[in-house]
């Protein structure tokens, strides 16, 4: 019986080892979004191009992507061609021009093409804060009932798209 007591440290070590091992390889930058499972927050934003006011009621009734981008963001340049292919394959993308200049954003879309069904300007970044955005590019999957089901931080590319696509219902 007393000899068993000597094994307590070993048992502790094994338990701790198992806990640490299960945490290995996890993305430490990953941060759960507080918005998943909630409706897209209410907004009133001006659209790029036609200067119209849009609200959350004007969002698509099907499943779609919300993509935060800006001409100031280097990774958005990397992401843009892939968004073009997505748009061509029929994925509805709502663009939020995040903390950007109207002129340079319009020029960007003219030169590189426009993958967005609608582009809204969030010049002050207030809608970004409401969505819990930490930077650009950042994308959200919204399902057909208007609920945010997934958030992706960083560039969408051919590698991670199948995972993201899985949430589009």
């Amino acid at each position: 019986m007393r000899k068993l007591l000597f094994f307590i440290p070993l048992v502790f070590f094994l338990i701790l080892g198992a806990v640490f091992y299960s945490q290995l390889g996890k993305d430490v930058q990953y941060m759960p979004s507080a918005l998943v499972g909630k409706k897209v927050p209410n907004f009133t934003l001006v659209s790029l191009g036609d200067d119209q006011l849009y609200t959350h009621k004007d969002l698509p009734k099907t499943s779609y992507l919300i993509n935060f981008w800006g001409t100031w963001c280097p990774a958005c340049h990397v992401e843009h061609p892939f968004l073009m292919t997505l748009a061509q394959s029929g994925v509805p993308i709502i663009g939020i021009d995040y903390k950007d200049q109207k002129d340079s954003a319009e020029q960007w879309l003219e030169q590189k093409g426009n993958p967005y069904q609608m582009v809204l300007m969030d010049e002050m970044g207030n809608f970004g804060v409401d969505m819990g955005v930490t930077g650009a590019p950042e994308s959200f999957v919204v399902d057909s009932s208007g609920v945010v089901v997934y958030r992706h931080q960083g560039v969408i590319n051919a590698e991670n798209w199948p995972d993201i696509q899985g949430y589009m219902k």
Partner: peptide
């Protein structure tokens, strides 16, 4: 802040 960015 918690409503937007979570308890994080």
């Amino acid at each position: 802040m918690v409503a937007r960015y979570g308890e994080f």
